[in-house]
């Protein structure tokens, strides 16, 4: 089995602040992490390897600063890492990103045929859940999104059975390899790095692939140029015409605040009055 896991390095959203005046995101000093959803993808791949043997390659498209994310993945047990990095990739939307990753996976497949590709459900910065489906379409792989459990992989029969989260229930799907799986969060418990793997990760080589190494054929399909969508503006939410009507609060007498609020609701908001009327105990 050769499994490729696509991961992205993202700024830790818990540390991001928005500049109150200019409305821009302040990235300085924000730690970079592996997209949290992608950890479930790594874990799913490693569990399959534990069970069936094989080789796990972790891959990311991004600037050279993304290398630590790949090293971290190696410390968790991945065998091999490739950073697909080239100035021309900058400014990519999901269509252009999936083009680059699909090309790189295809090229990697010439070294060692790829049976499965794992991605996270979505990223916390792009937050689109589109890159996985995009890669699958471009490689003409079977697509399995929102997978909550890998039931069975049979390398001899080249088949995979998964549980997929759908509206109102779970689909049990069977398909043929090669397939692309996007893993749902909480689908497994992500392991800690072992000491030998931590040492291995420090010394491991992370291969850097530029557009030629990645086998990019059409330069017009990458980066900003290859992106059909652009952000046309970024703005803060519009405040309502009036601010919230404040109900004065005295810590010594919370009950009068509550009473005053209830009185105002009943007087001013007919919809709420109606809801409350329906809930009155018949007494």
């Amino acid at each position: 089995m050769h499994i490729v896991v696509c991961i992205k390095q993202v700024p830790d959203s818990a540390h991001i602040r928005v500049h109150p005046v200019t409305n821009t995101i302040m990235r300085q000093g924000v730690p970079a992490i592996i997209n949290p959803y992608d950890l479930f993808a790594i874990e799913a791949a490693l569990r399959l390897k534990d069970r069936l043997g094989g080789h796990v390659t972790v891959m990311s498209m991004g600037p050279t600063q993304a290398e630590p994310a790949l090293r971290k993945a190696i410390s968790l047990g991945c065998d091999d890492a490739i950073l697909v990095t080239d100035r021309v990739f900058a400014g990519a939307d999901t269509l252009a990103t999936s083009y680059v990753l699909a090309s790189a996976i295809r090229t990697l497949g010439q070294e060692r045929p790829v049976d499965l590709v794992f991605t996270g459900k979505q990223t916390i910065d792009g937050d689109t859940a589109q890159v996985g489906p995009g890669i699958a379409r471009r490689l003409d792989m079977q697509l399995l999104t929102y997978v909550s459990r890998i039931v069975e992989v049979d390398p001899a029969k080249r088949s995979i059975v998964v549980e997929r989260r759908a509206e109102g229930g779970v689909q049990v799907l069977q398909t043929a390899l090669p397939a692309l799986v996007t893993m749902l969060e909480g689908s497994n418990e992500v392991r800690f790095a072992s000491t030998p793997d931590m040492f291995r990760a420090v010394r491991a080589t992370v291969r850097h692939w530029d557009r030629n190494d990645a086998g990019i054929e059409d330069i017009k399909q990458v980066g900003l140029k290859g992106s059909p969508t652009i952000v046309s503006r970024v703005f803060g939410p519009t405040p309502r015409a009036e601010k919230a009507r404040q109900v004065p609060f005295d810590p010594a007498d919370p009950d009068s605040t509550a009473a005053s609020l209830l009185e105002q609701l009943l007087a001013d908001v007919p919809k709420v009055r109606k809801e409350l009327e329906q809930r009155r105990s018949p007494s």
């Binding site: 939410p237 309502r240 601010k243 919370p254 605040t257 509550a258 009473a259 409350l276």
Partner: peptide, 25 residues
């Protein structure tokens, strides 16, 4: 920021306000 789009606001400790609201309702 929530006071920018809420209709009614109570500036206070929710640990105190919630039980008071529960009693009133």
């Amino acid at each position: 920021p929530i006071f920018d789009f809420a209709h009614y606001g109570i500036v206070g400790d929710c640990v105190q306000v919630l039980p008071a609201l529960t009693r009133a309702f």
